[in-house]
């Protein structure tokens, strides 16, 4: 499957090791729409491809945002791109958050670190259709206050009616007055109606495992807990075999799964 050229319209740093690129099709053409939680394969010239979640607003598909953490060869090459540069894009791929089927429910968005990036399109969608959903809670965990993604946006979300946000960090700094500790600690303090809530979780696998367990203790059924998984991916079309976890091709059926479909495999080590 061939990539198509997209132009970097804007690029900015988010934190010390993360940045966002806003991409537009080059030459100008209609952009494919995307569903919250889907991802693209971004190709940096000569360096290779990487699976990157779409972090922008699904209502504005012509300006595709990707928030990337600089961790390997490809993401480091993507980090060097500047406005006007072009890259290759294949996608969007995968099955995203079932946000439409969650209408009427209270939503709990729980993110660890860069896990907020794939959740943000779902948050945008819920806020854009605010009256379609019940209470919205956003629980975030970050390594340090400086690693917290989208702080300005977070401040805006806090001001939205019926939206509550809580943040915790692994290590505070001298100015930090908020929570310190893992994101599961934030769950113990909240009241949720297990029959009418849904949780959307993205973060490191171990964080999702503990978070899901904490939500189960609160009475939330597995079918109401959605997790976004991550695996090495090469093809994104279920042919290269890299992203398998048990019988699941994460790139196609996933990356988002209701917990009941993936719980068995999530509980295994090294699968």
């Amino acid at each position: 499957m061939m990539p198509s050229p997209w132009r970097v319209a804007e690029r900015w740093d988010e934190t010390a090791d993360t940045f966002t690129v806003a991409l537009e099709p080059e030459p100008r053409r209609e952009a494919p729409g995307f569903a919250p939680g889907q991802f693209n394969m971004l190709y940096a010239f000569g360096a290779g491809e990487s699976a990157i979640s779409i972090s922008g607003d699904p209502a504005l598909p012509g300006r595709m945002l990707h928030t990337v953490r600089k961790v390997g060869t490809v993401t480091s090459a993507l980090a060097l791109l500047r406005p006007g540069d072009t890259l290759g894009l294949r996608g969007p791929f995968g099955t995203g958050w079932p946000i439409e089927s969650l209408r009427g429910r209270d939503l709990l968005f729980i993110a660890g670190g860069i896990g907020l990036a794939p959740l943000r399109p779902a948050i945008y969608h819920a806020l854009r259709h605010r009256t379609a959903y019940g209470a919205i809670r956003i629980l975030l965990g970050a390594r340090t206050p400086a690693d917290l993604l989208y702080p300005e946006e977070l401040a805006n979300w806090r001001k939205s009616p019926g939206v509550a946000c809580a943040v915790t960090v692994d290590r505070g700094d001298s100015d930090w007055q908020g929570h310190v500790g893992v994101v599961t600690k934030l769950i113990s303090s909240i009241n949720l109606d297990p029959r009418n809530s849904a949780a959307l979780i993205c973060g490191p696998e171990v964080m999702m495992r503990y978070t899901a367990a904490a939500l189960r203790e609160k009475g939330l059924p597995q079918e109401s807990i959605h997790v976004s998984l991550e695996r090495n991916m090469k093809c994104a079309v279920a042919h290269c075999g890299h992203c398998q976890i048990g019988p699941h091709f994460i790139c196609q059926e996933g990356p988002v799964y209701p917990l009941n479909r993936i719980a068995f495999w999530l509980a295994q080590r090294e699968v």
Binding site: Y43, F45, G46, A47, G48, E49, K234, C235, H239, C240, G241, H242
Partner: peptide, 22 residues
């Protein structure tokens, strides 16, 4: 299963993407 390899020419203006068994 397959993986992919990216190679560039010395000129820097041409790159190739290869798939191979993994």
């Amino acid at each position: 299963c397959t993986t992919v390899e990216d190679v560039t020419h010395l000129t820097g203006d041409h790159a190739e993407r290869w798939r191979r068994w993994d």
